[in-house]
């Protein structure tokens, strides 16, 4: 298929990348391309300039800091996370990445691309909110950090604005995590997803696919009824579409949230 005409830049440093992003209205980062190229094919969006991040080695690392924080470069692919010994410090990450699409997409698709596209059906936005992640965003003004629950601001929209680039995803140490989803076919698009982390003082349960951004709820316990009550209390108003009605998504939200917490409990014990 012929894409709309587009400019192409291939910077070799983050500084150059944020400069070119800031210099052109309608410039968009090109990470793995597994979302944005399809968006361009469907004419849902037509960026003026694609800023190819492939030469930015500083965005590729997967490192474990001395305090146990796992730091993913935004350009780390799903396959790299799955294969990484460091990423096993938070095993849920590799497990969830292995459920995304297929080999080809996992080889190209990146963690940064998954969260910056913030498609409400994507796996990683709810997961990273549950894990208490911090995002580092670079611009010509320097770096700033944003907690995951403030990073996702709407459908396809994040706190990384024009002229900004997500560079790092910092995930605190922990292991009591779970993820559950009802998908369209095995490893397919999520109809409703939920991630849970029991590492903090109270469970963090995050539901995906039911709102423009992941919905964080804080049940007062980790038993099934407490989780279901907390999800009900969020008064979700999910969309209806060919895959599920709003009522069914509301039902699934409780079910997958309870499953995610149950898996997290098993993992923690």
């Amino acid at each position: 298929m012929l894409l709309p005409e587009v400019g192409y830049a291939r910077p070799s440093t983050v500084d150059e990348a944020v400069h070119v992003l800031a210099s052109h209205d309608g410039a968009r980062p090109l990470a793995g391309g597994q979302t944005i190229l399809n968006v361009m094919k469907s004419r849902a969006a037509a960026p003026d300039v694609l800023v190819d991040l492939q030469d930015l080695d500083e965005l590729r690392g997967i490192e474990l800091a001395a305090d146990g924080t796992l730091v993913l470069g935004a350009m780390a692919t799903y396959s790299e996370v799955i294969a990484s010994a460091e990423a096993r410090a938070r095993p849920i990450l590799g497990e969830v990445c292995a459920q995304i699409a297929d080999v080809q997409v996992r080889n190209r698709g990146t963690v940064g691309g998954n969260i910056c596209s913030n498609d409400p059906t994507n796996h990683l936005p709810p997961l990273l909110v549950a894990l208490g992640t911090t995002m580092t965003i670079a611009s010509s003004a320097g770096e700033r950090t944003v907690p995951a629950e403030e990073f996702f601001v709407g459908v396809y929209a994040t706190a990384a604005g024009p002229g900004e680039l997500l560079t790092k995803i910092s995930i605190p140490a922990g292991k009591g995590d779970g993820f559950a989803a009802v998908t369209i076919g095995k490893d397919g698009t999520c109809i409703v997803s939920a991630a849970a982390s029991l590492d903090g003082d109270a469970p963090r349960v995050v539901v995906g696919c039911v709102h423009g951004v992941p919905v964080l709820v804080r049940p007062d316990g980790a038993d099934e009824e407490a989780v279901r009550r907390a999800v009900r209390g969020a008064n979700l108003e999910p969309p209806s579409d060919v895959h599920a009605s709003a009522d069914y998504r509301r039902h699934l939200a409780e079910v997958v949230a309870a499953r995610a917490v149950q898996r997290a409990r098993t993992r923690r014990s």
């Binding site: 298929m1 192409y8 291939r10 090109l30 391309g33 597994q34 190229l37 399809n38 094919k41 469907s42 694609l50 190819d52 492939q54 396959s79 297929d102 080999v103 080809q104 997409v105 080889n107 190209r108």
Partner: peptide, 25 residues
């Protein structure tokens, strides 16, 4: 649209769908 895999090739030794990359990349 990146679904069917008929365009799969090895790219620097890694399996990819060639309809999901630009030639300039």
């Amino acid at each position: 649209t990146g679904n069917c895999g008929a365009c799969s090739v090895l790219y620097d030794g890694t399996l990819v769908k060639s309809c999901m990359l630009l030639a300039v990349q």
